[in-house]
Design a protein around this nucleic acid. Structure first.
Lengths: 373, 373
DNA sequence: CTGTTAGCGCCTTCAA
DNA sequence: TTGAAGGCGCTAACAG
């Protein structure tokens, strides 16, 4: 006969609903607050009551209602995460890092996708605020859209925010980003070192539009406090060209629609040119795929006829023939840093907002060779 | 002068904290319940009060506290999701589907990773229950570990559960899975049709261990109510062989450590055999990568020397040279189905638990050819 | 249509 | 050490 057998009847009765602290207290024959003290372990209780309460809790299968707890403590132990698309390996890795670091610190994670849509992003932040998350990790999509911007409001309300992957111009919040500028510069320099002089960038900043790249338009890019992966990669690319005294030819910097289709169109156009590039830097997964497709379709061989460097490493890149040289980004680490930073802020860490730059790694495989003739 | 200018002072005062329904009511000069009625839009209120309340809410930047709402309604409008690893493209896609379908129905999503660890899974379920989620989507890792299994307890407590990707033997809950058996059978038949007679399966069920595959051991697999992707794929493979009167050779069914390293070891061993297989079916992303690596390392050409069919399609597979024939699984759809089903159950839908099988698509590209002479 | 009165389950003074 | 009482912000019956 098991110790709890005597209670069997009431157990079966109660078992079907969620037992509350009061029920545990009653069954243990103690006051609610005593039960609360041992179940929430705080305050002090006699060894005797503690055991009685614990036993009662076990028998009832008691599980504390975090909602109620949050209600009275004002803390939910929950982090909100807002990203464009969790199906994108980049964000998936980041989320993994966030979730792990959060869990380690006892925090849960609620997720919202926005597809880079500002309205949905605002909605997402509002939702998270409604759920009373303790902090928010966000890859901000656009500028502050509405005037009473939910993100800023959240800050005002005292909810810490950590930006990832990008940075908003007017938002005074911590950020964890890749060191995209360096990564792109390294990639470009690797190609230059191999002898390339005409290196196409796929894709570059969409905003460049059709306008010629002037020193002043570039200056804007260089001096804004806003960080975008595309913008930074462009600047790194440019810096490398500058350092090598190579001219930046806007014709081989993709500025159109940022999609696989856009990439394919751009690559096809550029290859049909009198002076086609001898190498491509593909700054996104989709860019890599698009370039690979079109280069292949054009009957060019990598790296003999065309050199390629990609971003967003994948196991596939290494089994490719030839293995593709890529920039590997510590996505998971980025997520961990962001979560840890956020939790520090939640815990009251002060100080100016700062940007955490994570170095990525250039994995030199076999997709670069000297340019033809 | 903007309409709210007259309130500027109090706005600034209050703006820094989260305004409550009471404050809105006070400022609007109405009772709490009236404010509650318009903000929660239920009951009926005069147009006049409604406007006053709305105005006050806007001025204060009021946002309803979902926690408190949940507290009194007993509903959180939140789905819990438990998966092995969100960084895995399969689960990432599934999660995307879940999140989308959930959002559409007004539900939020909280995520927990388990790394296929049963203890962490139990912990995860408990956590979700603590957060009072309305339902749980789970890719169950193992058998019901502890006796008071959290998952079963959750069910007892009235929280609906939908299993995805796999199925637990004793769990009476809905499930949404891929039709792995058919997919594997189709893949195998495609190879057989191309003339292959020795087709290796990478990987197969780990449990097969070193034991010989006997009719009875197979029967167990076939009759259990437990569904695993590996097991089902193995059965599909076997069914295709049976139908073609081909013998199943355990030597070319991988049963070891399910990892890239395990795959490489297996492939190397099998290739060194007197009668190596002429084709590989790789049932996981990692299996595909491992096979590709080793086949390449062995100097074999695809598909001339070796045919390959993979699972878990990827953009990379199509830009590969040759493009890899793969089984594409509607991962996102799987997530959507699971979430919808779960929400139906939450909304009170009755009926026996049932299993929803999703068909996957065999994308025939270029990695299959007739076996060498 | 409106305000009053109770809770939801927990934490937290405050006396005892 | 322990219990009683009040409150977190909201919804929900209940009168008026």
């Amino acid at each position: 006969m098991r110790p709890s057998a005597q209670y069997t009847e009431s157990v079966t009765t109660v078992d079907t609903a969620k037992p509350t602290l009061s029920e545990v207290a009653r069954r243990a024959g103690v006051g609610r607050s005593s039960a609360a003290r041992v179940l929430g372990n705080y305050g002090s209780v006699s060894a005797h009551t503690r055991e009685r309460v614990l036993a009662a809790a076990r028998e009832l299968g008691y599980e504390t209602n975090e909602l109620a707890r949050s209600m009275s403590t004002g803390v939910t132990m929950t982090l909100g995460v807002v990203v464009a698309d969790i199906a994108n390996p980049f964000f998936a890795g980041v989320l993994r890092g966030i979730a792990d670091a959060a869990r380690e610190a006892g925090y849960g994670t609620v997720l919202v996708n926005t597809d880079e849509d500002e309205a949905r992003e605002d909605e997402a932040v509002r939702l998270l605020m409604g759920k009373q998350v303790d902090g928010i990790v966000i890859a901000p999509a656009g500028g502050a859209a509405a005037d009473p911007n939910p993100l800023r409001t959240a800050q005002l309300r005292g909810v810490p925010i950590v930006q990832i992957d990008r940075t908003l111009a007017g938002l005074e919040a911590d950020a964890v980003v890749m060191d995209n500028r360096h990564a792109a510069r390294d990639a470009t320099e690797l190609l230059i070192a191999a002898g390339h002089r005409r290196i196409a960038l796929v894709w570059g900043p969409a905003r460049l539009g059709r306008q010629t790249v002037t020193p002043s338009s570039l200056e804007r890019w260089a001096t804004t406090t806003e960080l975008t992966s595309v913008g930074e990669r462009f600047l790194g690319y440019r810096a490398a060209l500058d350092a090598a005294d190579l001219e930046l030819d806007p014709a081989i910097v993709m500025t159109g629609e940022q999609s696989i289709a856009g990439v394919r169109a751009f690559v096809r156009t550029v290859l049909a040119t009198p002076r086609p590039p001898t190498a491509f830097i593909a700054t996104e997964l989709d860019a890599v795929i698009g370039v690979l497709e079109e280069v292949h379709a054009a009957g060019l061989r990598v790296p003999a006829d065309m050199s390629i460097v990609g971003f967003d490493d994948s196991p596939w890149a290494s089994v490719f023939d030839p293995p593709i040289t890529t920039v590997r980004q510590p996505v998971q680490r980025l997520g961990e840093h962001a979560a840890r930073r956020l939790i520090e802020r939640i815990s009251g860490a002060g100080g100016e907002p700062f940007v955490d730059h994570l170095a990525s790694e250039l994995i030199d495989r076999g997709s670069i060779a000297a340019p033809r003739g």
